[in-house]
Design a protein around this nucleic acid. Structure first.
Lengths: 196, 196
DNA sequence: GTTCTTCCATGCGCTAGCGTATGGTCATGG
DNA sequence: CCATGACCATACGCTAGCGCATGGAAGAAC
């Protein structure tokens, strides 16, 4: 696919910390954590390491900044949208699944970070995001009438299923339902199984 | 110069292809695919690259050999054990989950490979293993009385849940049930949800 | 329009790891 | 008893990437 395409716009614009952080996220999305390398990123941004080491102490600092941005986006954003869309927990759960599943298929930062879960910089971020997400789901199940412990079990199950689905979609998409109709039926079935 | 101090191996035994492949699997288990590096492996085996490049053309050939071994173990072995243990599909499913879950927690080759699912050498192996495993689960659900399409949905759900559970166990174990009792209850609940 | 600060380019040294070249050792069969 | 081939060690070249050091350019301050 597309390789490092240099910014054609001869924008001699100066770069910011956030420019680098976003570039890092883009690199993670299509190449994993290992693709966050200073020199290739510099090429991609039409700059050099000189710029980078002005804005960041080292590669790890870049990762920190990038992951912080991702964490922000991954917690507040979706949660707000869900809350705004409906009041019915059933609808919310459905919407959550839809949103979150196709987010995972379109934008692969999440999966890429899961692939690097043991990395010392990634681990705490991932832990916080996971905890927040599961918390939301637990609350939904409780509002659906499940007792707290059952709600927690179901939420873990649901979140595990989501994670696993992402893995399958990523590693062996051929085994999953392909047409939109099949996908909808599968989703309905999944929600039915998980909520009954 | 520094004398070549023999690191561990008191055994002067000559190495085989399989020795290298097993060492590679061990490296994958505790360091991921990137940890399969010729020179570190050589040190670990008390040998040098000279030996390695006698047995293998290059690093990729080593990966091929290692993954072939893993594939063999991951498909035939467990499946045979399940079939031998019981005839009741319910028991078999339960046993499958138990086996496979603590296999994933004890031996982390599977998760490590999932983390590298997009690697060209890993992808086809993973696809075959996944397909085989899901096939087994589909068959179990059919024997439980589910219609083929429902059986398939449930099997996908179950396998996704397993994969996701592995992810959680690996990335944020604190969120999962900790005591054996809780774990058993969680497993029962999961099986109940997935089979009813 | 000097001067000061911010931002960036260039070039260097360093490390880890891949792959190759070449020669040495050791068991075995002739 | 030696010659052959399987096995391995050593030393080398090569690449990618990190991090640093230094010298500018480009605005802003005055």
């Amino acid at each position: 696919m597309v390789m490092a395409e240099r910014v054609v716009a001869p924008s001699r614009r100066r770069l910011t910390r956030d420019d680098w952080a976003d570039a890092a996220l883009a690199a993670i999305a299509d190449g994993g954590l290992a693709a966050v390398a200073v020199e290739p990123l510099a090429v991609r941004l039409g700059a050099t390491k000189g710029s980078f080491y002005w804005h960041f102490a080292n590669r790890e600092a870049l990762l920190d900044a990038a992951l912080a941005r991702w964490e922000e986006r991954s917690t507040t954003a979706v949660i707000r949208e869900i809350a705004a869309a409906s009041d019915d927990p059933r609808d919310q759960l459905r919407l959550l699944f839809i949103r979150v599943i196709d987010a995972a298929e379109r934008d692969s930062i999440g999966p890429a970070l899961l692939s690097a879960a043991s990395h010392p910089v990634v681990a705490p971020v991932l832990a916080r995001v996971t905890k927040a997400r599961i918390g939301v789901i637990v609350a939904l199940f409780e509002r659906l009438g499940f007792a707290p412990d059952k709600a927690r079990s179901r939420a873990l199950l649901a979140y595990s299923t989501y994670l696993g689905h992402g893995q399958l979609a990523h590693s062996t998409p051929g085994l999953l339902p392909r047409t939109n109709e099949e996908r909808r039926a599968y989703l309905d079935h999944a929600l039915h199984v998980l909520t009954n």
